[in-house]
Design a protein around this nucleic acid. Structure first.
Lengths: 220, 220
DNA sequence: GCGGTCACCTACCAATCGGTAGACATTCGT
DNA sequence: ACGAATGTCTACCGATTGGTAGGTGACCGC
């Protein structure tokens, strides 16, 4: 039935330098946009151009592919971490701009990252909690400590709850990037003197983060 | 038009008057927690205690059940809208507290609402965009107008982009409530002098919203 | 030349998916 | 009392799912 259209004798050796990598990339994109349950192994194999059975040669199960995608994402995050901590080592407003800039950049580079993270924490909260505890919690602690320094020095509002503040901002960035295209474009007029919905979204995000942090109103 | 309740003309209620309602409730919970694709009609029927075929008597397809769940959710939202607009009709700080309080309450009442909304905008952004445009955009406009009044009166920061601000805060509330249990508990220590992670989350959310809105630092 | 491993393939499987057909019982207006 | 809805059931369907079995060719060190 359903005579599978065997395209040909498949003469192409199909270089396939890093099929594994290609599969992870395709899976990231599909998982992020359709969800884990909404994506079949067939879908992923089709994108890469191999058979489903060949996919299962590289990853012994769908679950393990999921883990590989997540591991890959977190390793990319870890690569960028030093740069972020360097940014956090500055002082005052430059520090603020640098840190939040690095954060935004990571997800702006590929919004699928934000979508996947959001989906994972919806689908498998328990697993995600552990991962966040390992990969993000220490970094949150570092930034929170910088905030406490700022509070002692007097340039950061004493009412700020450092950890909770960082978590909220991260949350805002992640979920914002994940659904910005849908959410903001629906609620913000497409053309406006202040700019495109995306621009207004990002600008206001940074304004909110800054205005709710420093004691004195920032000078833009 | 979708007649909500028959004007006493139809006697029809009969034995299982709320099978439909039960199914919608169960579907909301399951869709919110496992996603649409991660939930089978069998799962939903099991929760209610009927057979899958009986479910399909009430909803002619899974897709229509999805739409019914969404319609129900938005009708509940619409029921609460007047109260929210009354809150918005106040002035100054009380207005702020009332509005954001109503918003938080809606999702706090049942966090599945936030989870479902977030999932829908990830899974079917296009559809969600239209729904938001119909049900939320007008309300965003009203609140934004109030913010503009406040800016003219001088008690709200002139740098605030009214629409973008409202969207950001709504975004923060929705995605915050949707994943609070996982996200915050992972990154905030379970016991802390400032309170539970939930308390700190909500308190900081409101602080951020307020501090980034008013020109003068609010006095709590 | 030869065995082994790698990376892919075809062909298949049991389970589950959303959905249909039709029997059966209860309740209703007439 | 009776026919018609209404709501539930059992039994089934074709398609798709994640996963397995086993074959084939290219390339490797020896």
């Amino acid at each position: 039935m359903a005579g599978v259209s065997q395209p040909s004798g498949l003469p192409a050796p199909s270089v396939a330098p890093d099929a594994r990598r290609q599969l992870i990339d395709a899976a990231l994109r599909l998982f992020a946009n359709r969800g884990f349950d909404g994506t079949s192994l067939q879908d992923i194999a089709d994108v890469v151009g191999i058979r489903k059975a060949s996919l299962l040669y590289h990853f012994e199960s769908k679950e393990q592919l999921r883990l590989a995608v997540l591991d890959h994402l977190l390793s990319v995050w870890n690569e960028g971490l030093p740069r972020l901590l360097v940014a956090a080592a500055r002082t005052g407003a430059p520090r603020f701009s640098s840190v939040i800039g690095e954060l935004v950049r990571f997800f702006d580079e590929d919004p699928n990252r934000a979508r996947l993270l959001l989906r994972e924490s919806l689908d498998r909260g328990e697993d995600m909690r552990k991962r966040l505890q390992t990969f993000v919690a220490p970094w949150v602690g570092v930034v929170a400590e910088y905030i406490r320094d700022g509070q002692k020095a007097g340039d950061i509002d004493a009412h700020v709850d450092p950890e909770a503040y960082v978590v909220q901002i991260v949350h805002m960035v992640v979920s914002g990037m994940a659904t910005a295209a849908n959410f903001d474009h629906a609620l913000l007029p497409p053309s406006h003197p202040l700019g495109t919905p995306d621009e207004r979204h990002t600008r206001e995000l940074i304004r909110i983060a800054r205005a709710s942090l420093f004691r004195e109103r920032g000078t833009l």
